[in-house]
Design a protein around this nucleic acid. Structure first.
Length: 495
RNA sequence: GGUCACGUGGCCGAGAGGCUAGGCUCAGCUCUGCAAAAGCUGCUACAGCGGUUCGAAUCCGCUCGUGACCUCCA
């Protein structure tokens, strides 16, 4: 098992060595979407980030239990008591049952995840499926004196909690600041303190989504579901918790408080936060109305886009930026990513058809050392807080070598069995299994090979009109022929 | 207003005291019937001003600019 993986822990604001609680098992929880509308590209970035995290952990040999929840309880649109439930609101708007909304957008979400080649989580629990667990957890918090009941609602008692535990350590928040900045909210008369947050809310008569509880009919607060579900499936203390940076406060801060309030222990050992996707320098978010839907990108139907971009192009673009940096979306960046992605795939195809030489010459030590070092750089990048940008850079260096081998500029016979295997498996496994970058439309090899042999025949006959015609056909399929001294093959057209 | 980030070449983006990514674009070359593909070569940057240091894009300070969080958001 690899022991050099370092993770940037938001809690300590440092990169630290990853040491799982119960190796080889790793538990990871990622805050999933609220399914009241389509996921937008920003959401996708976060989920792709953690997809690579999970993939890499598995590549290293860990047995990962990956949880990503579906928030299907509406939660409030604003913080005042008469706020509307997001899902219920949407349901009214579309004249549907709330669960129809949930179903529709859950299906849509899964489809997008699949298009982006994000693996499904091991468990995808829903908030509505865990109401009783949430109630139990709230009872535990109440029993330990860190919450109070008011008018059929239950609130977390931040001042009481503060007597025994720090609050705000994850987000670097100072409680006094919180108080001064949250002073002027009206309609929170049930709360004893402005920093308190809801664990359970009384449902008013208009509220559709409601469940019985010891405190009356109501619905759970926004933060409690993650605490309840992570505890149930990963235990009171688990390894990694991830989510978007905007969840750091208050959501994740509240999760910590709830867990300690309920059972004393800080719940998470490594907190990871993915940075925002921006558009024209501004955060992409539903509330700002500047979000692009994956569908719009894949179809090219957004005004910002002059052409469609494929899911893999998007994934590649995500991975070219480190997850903790903001990424600014632009048509130019996507265009560059599209070409880069094809180049990487061309390398993949070469790697796959590489055949081990019958015999090796005297090994070219310099070449071998260079190759091994580049393979090492791929893993070192991933080890360094999942730096996919660095890994990709090294992969491109390998792709270059792969081309040279194929074109006969370098000879595989100059390697040895070990370095040959290392080159091949590193390129293929990291690209496909860890980065999740796969060939988008595997061509029907039969058709392509017919074209290819036609092309070869036309070339040897010097029938250049036919040659040009065949090239045009290939191009229309997004392919190009390449003539090498060692033979003719096809490749993805990068233009 | 408070808290915290960030500012890298034509563009996108890593890196984080001396080695200096990578992708895209552009120019030239090799190869080629012409191309394509591939390879090679060139373009050498770190907002500004001070400071620490033998040495700073990287550390410290200030200035300017941008963003995030403080309210639902991945």
């Amino acid at each position: 098992m690899n022991s050099s993986l370092k993770i940037y822990n938001t809690l300590s604001r440092k990169k630290v060595l990853f040491e799982p609680l119960h190796a080889p098992h790793v538990g990871i929880y990622v805050c999933g979407p609220t399914v009241y509308s389509d996921v937008h590209l920003g959401n996708c970035r976060t989920f792709t980030t953690f997809d690579v995290v999970v993939r890499y952990l598995r590549y290293l040999g860990y047995q990962v239990r990956y949880l990503r929840n579906i928030t299907d309880v509406g939660h409030l649109v604003d913080d005042v008591d008469e706020g509307e439930d997001k899902i219920a609101k949407r349901a009214k708007l579309e004249n549907l049952e709330p669960m129809e909304i949930v179903q529709r957008y859950t299906v849509g979400f899964h489809k997008v995840m699949q298009q982006l080649n994000n693996l499904p989580p091991s468990i995808e629990p829903t908030a509505t499926g865990h109401i009783s667990e949430q109630i139990t957890l709230i009872e535990q918090i109440l029993a330990r004196g860190y919450a109070y009941v008011a008018n059929g609602s239950v609130y977390f008692d931040v001042p009481a909690y503060l007597k025994n535990y720090p609050y705000g350590e994850l987000s670097g928040r100072v409680v006094e600041d919180l108080l001064s900045s949250t002073r002027d909210l009206d309609g929170q008369n049930d709360k004893k303190h402005p920093a308190d947050f809801a664990l359970w809310k009384l449902a008013n008569s208009a509220h559709i989504m409601r469940w019985p509880s010891p405190w009356g009919e109501g619905f759970p607060g926004w933060h409690i579901e993650c605490s309840a579900m992570s505890t149930k499936y990963l235990g009171q203390v688990f390894d990694i918790h991830g989510g978007g940076m905007d969840l750091q406060f208050p959501h994740h801060e509240c999760e910590i408080a709830q867990a300690r309030g309920a059972h004393e222990h800080a719940p998470v050992r490594y907190w990871m936060h993915a940075n925002m996707l921006t558009m024209n320098g501004q955060k992409m978010s539903k509330s700002l109305g500047n979000s692009i839907l994956p569908k719009e990108l894949f179809l090219g139907s957004h005004p910002l886009l002059s052409q469609p971009f494929s899911p893999m192009t998007l994934r590649f673009a995500f991975l070219q930026t480190h997850y903790r940096s903001t990424m600014d979306l632009s048509a130019d960046a996507l265009k560059a990513a599209q070409i880069g992605y094809k180049k990487l795939m061309n390398g993949l195809r070469i790697a796959k058809r590489l055949t081990e030489p019958q015999s090796y010459h005297a090994p070219n030590d310099k070449l071998i050392a260079e190759l091994l070092k580049t393979c090492e750089r791929v893993l070192a990048g991933l080890d360094d807080d999942f730096n996919t940008a660095v890994a990709l850079a090294a992969l491109f260096d390998l792709a270059k070598k792969l081309s040279q081998f194929e074109a006969g500029q370098l000879s595989l016979a100059d390697l040895d069995a070990a370095s040959y295997a290392r080159l091949k498996t590193t390129y293929i496994d990291i690209t496909e299994k860890v980065l999740g970058l796969v060939e988008e439309q595997p061509k029907t090899e039969g058709l392509v090979s017919v074209l290819l042999s036609d092309y070869a025949a036309a070339k040897s006959e010097k029938n250049f009109e036919r040659v040009d015609a065949l090239r045009a056909i290939a191009k229309s399929m997004g392919l190009a022929f390449k003539d090498m001294k060692t033979g003719i093959t096809w490749t993805y057209d990068e233009a």
